[in-house]
């Protein structure tokens, strides 16, 4: 992997130069305290020291509401108007969110490839940025605090400069387009980077063990904890919306007033909704809220492991940070494990 150095005073120039590769999107302020990825025209808008955006990057590729096709009695089925083929350059993506995208890539490229997702995903450049964990982050425990692939460029703070790892040929093009801004790596940079890596590893306030959790969850399938969570959970759907790896959607039709034309739509769904597991005949195999909360934890931490070899949780902390009822995934896992040193 090619690795170079970008002095911090050159960052603004470099980011501005990225506009020749596509529309730049980066974390910007949303309200007083929140952040969101959004289009950026001025480097000064970018919040370099952010911890998390409300929504992960999935909103760009797997949209909250999307038209799948148009239909009419006359024309049959028609794909929606294609979006202009402009590349989006995402600057400042944290490791957990890059891992989130890698998991979505895996899911949406399965037996039935989701072309809606990949049409946008394949046209995205990812420029990662390292971060310092806050009181909600537990990506160290999910093994997603660092990334070795899934980015075009990845910037790590080494005080006066960024160490820049080049992940793809597109990333290399970006560096070459502004080669004069970059420097070669020297010995002290290597040591600094390794020191920062240890520093980050040691700065986590939360550590949980996910290894052997699938087995423990099976043992605790009938634990009273699910009933307790069912009483607290509001079924508001927040955790599913903000999760980088929740990918369920519901399909519905929107009709025009002529009642013979319309659009087939899909929108983000949540397994916490009462009608998620509602089937024909009015039967609901997860009618109780407690069984729905249990299902969400089981799918993330147990079912996904069986299917893909790892949990789908990336430790971003969003579900905990944004749950109105204060449901805390870390506390739930520690309770399931009967951890005494918490």
């Amino acid at each position: 992997m090619k690795i170079v150095k970008l002095p911090k005073e050159n960052l603004a120039k470099f980011v501005s130069s990225l506009s020749s590769f596509g529309q730049i999107h980066a974390p910007v302020k949303r309200g007083e305290k929140s952040l969101a990825f959004g289009p950026v025209s001025d480097f000064a808008q970018i919040q370099l020291n952010y911890t998390r955006t409300i929504l992960p990057l999935k909103k760009y590729f797997f949209k909250p509401i999307d038209t799948m096709f148009n239909f009419s009695a006359e024309k049959g089925y028609e794909l929606p108007m294609e979006e202009p083929e402009q590349r989006n350059v995402f600057f400042g993506v944290h490791p957990c969110d890059i891992h989130g995208l890698k998991i979505l890539d895996l899911v949406f490229s399965g037996r039935y490839v989701d072309n809606y997702y990949f049409a946008r995903r394949n046209n995205a450049a990812i420029i990662g940025l390292d971060c310092i964990p806050d009181e909600f982050c537990f990506c160290r425990s999910t093994g997603t605090d660092f990334v070795d692939s899934g980015f075009d460029l990845f910037l790590s703070d080494i005080d006066e400069s960024y160490l820049v790892r080049v992940g793809t040929s597109l990333g290399d093009d970006m560096v070459k387009a502004t080669e004069s801004l970059f420097r070669d790596i020297e010995k002290q940079d290597r040591e600094k980077y390794k020191g920062k890596s240890i520093e980050k590893r040691e700065s986590f306030q939360i550590q949980i063990q996910l290894q052997d959790l699938p087995g423990i969850m099976d043992l605790e399938y009938d634990s009273p904890i699910w009933e307790e969570l069912g009483q607290d959970c509001l079924s508001c759907g927040t955790c599913s919306m903000v999760c980088p790896t929740c990918y369920c959607y519901a399909v519905f039709d929107e009709l025009d007033l002529d009642a013979s034309s319309g659009r087939r739509m899909r929108r983000w769904d949540s397994c916490l909704f009462k009608d998620y597991a509602l089937v024909a005949g009015g039967h609901n195999f997860r009618a109780e809220r407690s069984s729905r909360v249990k299902n969400r934890f089981f799918h993330k931490q147990r079912g996904f492991v069986s299917q893909y070899g790892r949990p789908s949780c990336v430790g971003c902390g969003r579900c905990k940070a944004y749950c109105p009822a204060g449901i805390d995934i870390v506390e739930v896992i520690n309770k399931l494990r009967s951890e005494i040193r918490v």
Partner: peptide, 29 residues
């Protein structure tokens, strides 16, 4: 829709008025 206002609020990525501003919000129900 038979899901809560929170769902649409998060889909549109609005800052949470309950958690961030501490307002008496009935979005979850």
């Amino acid at each position: 829709p038979n899901y809560a206002v929170c769902t649409e609020c998060k889909m549109a990525e609005y800052p949470c008025v309950l958690l961030e501003k501490g307002q008496l919000c009935l979005g979850p129900i």
